[in-house]
Design a binder for these strands. Structure first.
Lengths: 231, 231
DNA sequence: CTGTATCCGTGTTGATACTG
DNA sequence: CAGTATCAACACGGATACAG
């Protein structure tokens, strides 16, 4: 229990430096990301953050709780387990993830194809949606990624997607990475080798997939032969 | 020279995780912040980032260069020194700093009064300006913090501030931390004990200072007696 | 089953000293 | 001025053992 308790902190009045003191440690933002669509248990977090170790997760959760970014709640019996949930202010950090995501997807070194968590995929849709292209579309799209279900709604020129029953005009079931390959990789359902199945209005799905354009890449300013850290 | 060259990277397709791979290392964002208003030399960076050590600065600059966030340029003689300059894409990251700053200044654990760099103060004004309150103000404000000079312009309901000659309708000279105490701490010029001097239209300065309101704090969700890391 | 604590090998960070 | 070299302290990740 008696940890030394003194973190390395920027001694800087800049609010950005304070933000980095709070959420700049390794794994802090990915943890927040995984909680953005609702609370999760320790084990769920661990499962959706491949590479994190139990002790690091414990420590980050403590620090984020101390920062009032999240709270831990004990569920009533028979669940008898704890859940971690963003505070209101923690949830307001979603804009950080959107802006960071929009900037980073233009990175010259961003390479697609690496696996994403279910939550990442849903948040990326909130980030990349081109609202100007929605027009008068009025539709509900259900997504079922493993055990998790989400529902997207297009209405009145707006787009929302949240946890919820995967019902609607079209329902996609399967692996979220296969869905991402369609969404951002330009792949077609036929290329998915059965990793995805679709029920309902396939034409709607095709149109839906066009609503998430990727912005142009920024040019690389590194000469190809230099000693850049290649991953 | 032959560093192992393999960083700890999130193996995650999420664009946010990629962003963190690029600029999530300690000191990376403060370095970018210091370059946001124009290029700087190694020694200037070191001076404006108290606490960073030379080897870490070297390494971060290399990594940020490899990420195409900044470039290093050799100045023509007689300067004969290098400068570090953000790329276009690197400069577009300013929105990250604004969003991060707006979110973090609501932190329950944010405590004012810690020193800020000159660049931080200027960027914070870009972040916190309340454009709706500008009205028909038409004025130029000069700021002189140490060796650095900045010029703020209010015109057509817009606000800009950049490096530039500290001339205008009112000119403030002195320590940027004293200026911040007026800007965000509600202090008055008389309380500054001579750390600031003002030439020109003092009424304009008073009105100018009202254009940068702080948003309300988020509530703390930590019980005061708990073992929070009070770092 | 759901976390938490401890040990250990390794890599990163940071302070000091030093070189071109 | 612009970095390198060295070294100690710490953080991370993996494994494992422990507690409710």
């Amino acid at each position: 229990m008696n940890r030394p308790n003194r973190k390395r902190a920027y001694q800087d009045g800049c609010a950005v430096a304070h933000a980095l003191d709070l959420i700049g440690d390794r794994w802090a933002m990915p943890i927040m990301r995984e909680l953005m669509l609702g609370p999760k248990r320790f084990t769920d977090l661990r499962a959706s953050l491949p590479g994190i170790s139990a002790n690091v997760l414990t420590q980050r959760l403590e620090e984020l709780e101390a920062a009032s970014v999240l709270v831990r709640r004990r569920l009533p019996p028979p669940a008898a387990s704890q859940i971690y949930e963003l505070t209101d202010w923690g949830r307001e950090s979603e804009i950080l993830f959107q802006v960071l995501g929009r900037w980073a997807c233009r990175s010259p070194t961003m390479e697609p194809g690496k696996p994403m968590s279910q939550v990442s995929v849903v948040l990326s849709m909130r980030t990349m949606i081109n609202r100007a292209a929605i027009g008068d579309m009025d539709a509900t799209i259900g997504l079922r990624f493993g055990e998790e279900e989400f529902r997207a709604v297009l209405r009145d020129g707006d787009f929302t997607i949240d946890r919820g029953d995967a019902t609607g005009d079209v329902i996609v079931t399967g692996d979220q990475n296969a869905f991402v390959a369609m969404l951002y990789g330009g792949q077609r359902l036929e290329d998915m080798a059965g990793a995805l199945s679709v029920e309902g209005d396939r034409a709607l799905l095709d149109r839906f997939l066009t609503l998430f354009p990727l912005p142009p890449k920024a040019p690389s300013t590194v000469s190809p032969g230099s000693t850049a850290s290649s991953g």
